[in-house]
Structures are given as C-alpha cells and as structure tokens.
C-alpha cells in the first residue's frame, strides 16, 4: 500500500478540486474547479506537481488527517490557516515531509476563505468526466461526488522524494484595487446611471457566498426596462442583476444557465480574489476592455511563472541551497521588489 492521508476531522467544507471539468456545461454541469486557482497552482508547484493536479480545497476551517502507509510530501497555500504537524506549528506556502503516523491539523482561516492542500505526485483517485473536481450538486468528482468526511482516504500517487520548496511572503498573491470586469454581455439592459452606480459604488459580500456564487450588497443598479431575459449560458464570473438591483456573481459551481441580465463579467485573472472573499469584504469594480482583459490574462500567466521562479529550496539535512535558485530569486543581490510582477494588480 502506498502513502495515504486519512481524514479524522473533515473541516467545514473540504473538497477535491483541480482546474475543473470542461465540455459538459451544455449538459447542465458547470466546470467547478478551485475557487482560488492561483493558490491551488502555488500549492502544487511547492511540491513539484503539475499546476493543475487535484488538491484539497479547504473552506474557512481546515481538516486534520493522519499519514498512513508511507512517507508523504505536502504543502498548504492560500488563506492563512494555522497548520500544525504533530502539534507543532508549521509554515504555510511551504512543503513538508511527513512520515507514517504523523498528524496534520489545519485550523480556521485568519485571513481569506480557502486554502489548498497539495500532495506530491497528486492523488490516486479516478477522475469523473475528465476531472477530480467535486461538484456536489451533480454528485460527481472527488470522493463519491461529495465533500470529505471523517475516515476518507486520500492516497498519494507519487513518491515523497523531492525538494522542499517555499514561497517567501513578498511573492505570495495579493489582491488590491478594484475587481476588473468587462461590461456585457447584457449591459444594454441597464441605464447609463445603473452602469455608473455599478462602477462607482462599493459592494459588500453578503453572507450568501459559496462555491456557486456571491450575493453582493450595496446600491441598487437600475435596469433600463425589464429584468428577464430568455435563459442563456452563464460563465465563471458572470454578474447577474435580478429585479432587486443587487449584483450576484456566479462562480465555479454556478447553475449553467440563467434568466437575469448580466451587466458584466469578472476577468479570469481576478476570479481568485472572489474565491478568498469573506462575508463583509468590500469591492469596487472597474471596467476594462476585452483587449485589456486579454493582456491581464497574459500578465497573470507571467505572474504564476514568476511565483514558481521565486520559490526557494529549504535547507534540510543533506540538501544544500542551490546557488542557481538563489540567483534566480535575486536573494543574492537583494533586489526583488521594484520590478516584481507580483506587485501588479
């Protein structure tokens, strides 16, 4: 038997997530996938995985689990949740080696909403319709299409050998400034004043926020006429405005079609920030052109590459810090922040 994590406390809502399941929205199944795919990718990179390996997405309160069967290497990234290994505090954004019998416990989020636990080599669990992402409403993905429970086993596919990488604090994702949107596809259902309200007011995340979407509170957005459309497709980040004028952002586990006009679409590079939004958080929205949004997507990819390049190898018995890596991270010269792509919005 290979190494395995056995869940002894499942946390609030812990589910397996990867980039999502594509090709089935036409059959009523939205892609799901990690709500903060930036943190998911970071967790994977920290243990040497492909960026899109399935991870455990932890929500507000993490899980605890015991290692069985063999050694494991894992990393936690995303929301700031206290991590302990055998009762001793351990760093997030850092890979850890565990031996059989070791116990990890992940506490409540002190900041942010979701953290991602990646296991080196990925999980030895069969995908459903091409993905391990859990979509609990469709009862597919993960383990039996549901959130994790006590007793669930997460078998590692790979081996525990490999470097222990860490991402220093300055290079971790930061979300600042307004959430960028492209207006449309149904912005013509709103008055110019309605659109001005949307782009100038601050909106607060209500307590109706989950993997399906985020209901916002704030000034009502005026429709030009009716607020019903013939239902059409909804994507991750579509912002619907129903009759009450309050925007609702549809997210990873959204329903696939909807009948309210969509004033705007959150650009892909900013979606991760909504995955970390807690009730009470406030946002402003800024409109960008579709062309600018594509440039932002290019920049976002660069940012992920830069994050990978900034990871340092932790010194441990028998492992020297490679000078190549030190150079790559500018740690030698100490110049790293001025042109740091991570400081871009």
């Amino acid at each position: 038997m290979g190494a395995c994590l056995v869940v002894d406390r499942p946390g609030l809502f812990s589910s397996l997530q990867d980039f999502g399941r594509f090709g089935y929205q036409r059959f009523g199944i939205s892609a799901s996938g990690a709500m903060d795919s930036l943190a998911m990718q970071a967790a994977n990179l920290l243990v040497g995985n492909e960026r899109g390996e399935a991870t455990v997405e932890l929500t507000m309160l993490g899980l605890s689990a015991v290692v069985e069967g063999g050694p494991l290497r894992l990393a936690l990234a995303g929301a700031d949740m206290a991590l302990t290994i055998n009762g001793t505090a351990a760093e997030g954004w850092s890979a850890h080696r565990l031996a059989p019998g070791d116990r990890i416990a992940i506490g409540a989020a002190r900041q942010g909403m979701r953290a991602y636990l990646a296991i080196a080599g990925g999980l030895d669990i069969a995908p459903t319709l091409g993905s391990l992402s859990t979509h609990s409403r469709s009862t597919i993905g993960g383990i039996d299409g549901r959130a994790l429970r006590t007793g669930d086993r997460l078998p590692a596919r790979g081996e525990s050998a490999g470097p222990r990488l860490a991402l220093p604090a300055p290079y971790r994702p930061r979300g600042e400034g307004p959430i960028r949107v492209v207006l449309g596809p149904q912005d013509d259902f709103f008055t110019p004043e309605g659109i001005a309200t949307f782009l100038s007011a601050r909106y607060r995340v209500s307590d109706k926020v989950d993997r399906m979407g985020a209901q916002l509170e704030g000034p009502a957005i005026a429709h030009a006429g009716g607020f019903n459309i013939v239902s059409d497709g909804i994507m991750n980040g579509s912002i619907q405005v129903p009759g009450n004028g309050r925007p609702l952002i549809l997210l990873a586990d959204r329903q696939t079609t909807g009948g309210y006009p969509k004033i705007a679409t959150v650009i892909g590079p900013d979606l991760w920030r909504l995955g970390q939004a807690r009730p009470g958080d406030e946002f402003a929205f800024a409109a960008v052109t579709a062309e600018a949004a594509v440039l932002a997507a290019v920049e976002h990819e660069r940012r992920i590459a830069a994050m990978a390049a900034r990871m340092i190898e932790l010194a441990s018995a028998g492992a020297a810090l490679s000078s190549e890596r030190l150079l790559a991270h500018n740690l030698v010269s100490g110049v790293c922040s001025a042109l740091d792509p991570l400081s871009e919005p």
């Binding site: 596809p185 149904q186 679409t265 959150v266």
Partner: peptide, 17 residues
C-alpha cells in the same frame, strides 16, 4: 457577437424562444 470577459463570446441569434 457579445463579449463575456476575456474568455467568452456570446453568439446571439435572437431574443425569444
């Protein structure tokens, strides 16, 4: 043809069933 973010395009043929 309507933009839906940077990664979506809505091709709309009409507004009724």
């Amino acid at each position: 043809l309507l933009d839906a973010g940077e990664s979506g395009l809505v091709v709309e043929f009409g507004d009724a069933i």
